[in-house]
């Protein structure tokens, strides 16, 4: 049995509004990042892969199983939705046991797994706490624990780092990388940093289409020669922001070092070509494919 996800010509619409257009994608074992702005269609694609949404046309097979076979798909995928919660008055370990039972894990086995998983996501000392007493980060980690409870071949996590503090985010990424060693982990995010730290393979989505597909280094390579840094007086900043995509700034006294994305050499004093970072490369990718990007105006 193959261990990849093959998506061919998938279209999906909600009523009259089409949200996915001819998606073609192959996802191999390991960590796969789906990058895109809010509303790009990432969540819809992920829900479709988790057999929670019906596609209108096209073909999807997950590890050789067609997506129409929802029962089998559900048995081998773990899904962490972007927004979720749990019965607030249940205890942490109780909720996991409950969801484990729904996954068909025998109860003795389930208890063992819950303990080891809670240890793994560092919630073991909170196992008797009620869900309503957990912090946002703890709930996220519990979310991951429930998604891998039945040891799925495919793990689908939707915007998992939203709302986490930097320390928790790092822990989370490390956990993801560990999990990706022996399964497919599909991670969607609009935070470039998450992808940079974890994924080798990525795809960029915008307006329901796959804009770009490849490895991180290929993306960086594509942007080579299009990222510049300039050192300008602070007062020019608003004008620069208007004309270029600004992906980074570093202020020093009244000067400021600005990182910009530009097709040609910018018409600014002493621009220096620099090695692209992923954020810049992502912006370049969006821009070079005709997306309306306004960098810097944050």
């Amino acid at each position: 049995m193959s261990d990849n996800i093959i998506i061919k010509g998938v279209n999906k619409s909600y009523g009259k509004k089409q949200v996915l257009f001819d998606i073609d994608l192959t996802i191999e074992k390991g960590m796969f990042g789906l990058l895109g702005r809010n509303g790009a269609g990432k969540t819809t694609l992920m829900k479709t892969l988790a057999a929670l949404h019906k596609k209108n046309s096209g073909e999807i097979t997950v590890c050789g199983v067609p997506i129409e076979n929802a029962a089998e798909i559900r048995a081998m995928t773990g899904y962490l939705p972007q927004e979720f919660s749990m019965y607030p008055s249940m205890r942490t370990d109780e909720v996991l046991c409950y969801l484990g039972t729904l996954s068909g894990i025998p109860s003795r086995e389930c208890k063992k797994r819950v303990t080891s998983l809670l240890r793994r996501v560092d919630l073991i000392e909170h196992r008797h706490k009620k869900i309503k007493e957990l912090s946002g980060g703890m709930k996220r980690r519990l979310g991951i624990a429930q998604a891998i409870l039945h040891d799925p071949k495919v793990l689908i996590v939707d915007e998992p780092t939203a709302g986490l503090d930097p320390e928790e985010r790092i822990r989370f990424r490390n956990l993801m990388c560990e999990l990706a060693e022996d399964r497919i982990v599909l991670l969607s995010t609009h935070i470039v940093g998450d992808i940079e730290a974890t994924c080798e393979q990525i795809a960029i989505m915008d307006s329901g289409k796959i804009l770009w597909r490849g490895t991180v280094s290929e993306l960086l390579k594509e942007a080579e020669g299009h990222i510049y840094t300039v050192n300008v007086a602070k007062r020019f900043l608003p004008q620069i922001k208007k004309e270029y995509i600004v992906t980074g700034m570093l202020a020093q006294n009244e000067y400021i070092t600005v990182r910009i994305v530009s097709d040609a050499e910018p018409d600014l004093p002493n621009p220096v070509q620099t090695a692209p970072d992923l954020e810049g490369a992502y912006m370049y990718c969006l821009r070079s494919r005709g997306c309306d990007v306004c960098g810097g105006d944050e």
Binding site: R74, E83, S103, G104
Partner: peptide, 16 residues
Amino acid sequence: ADRKRRMTELVYSRRI
């Protein structure tokens, strides 16, 4: 309860 507690998707995605 599932809907109210926003737990539907967690339950939907299980094998059962």
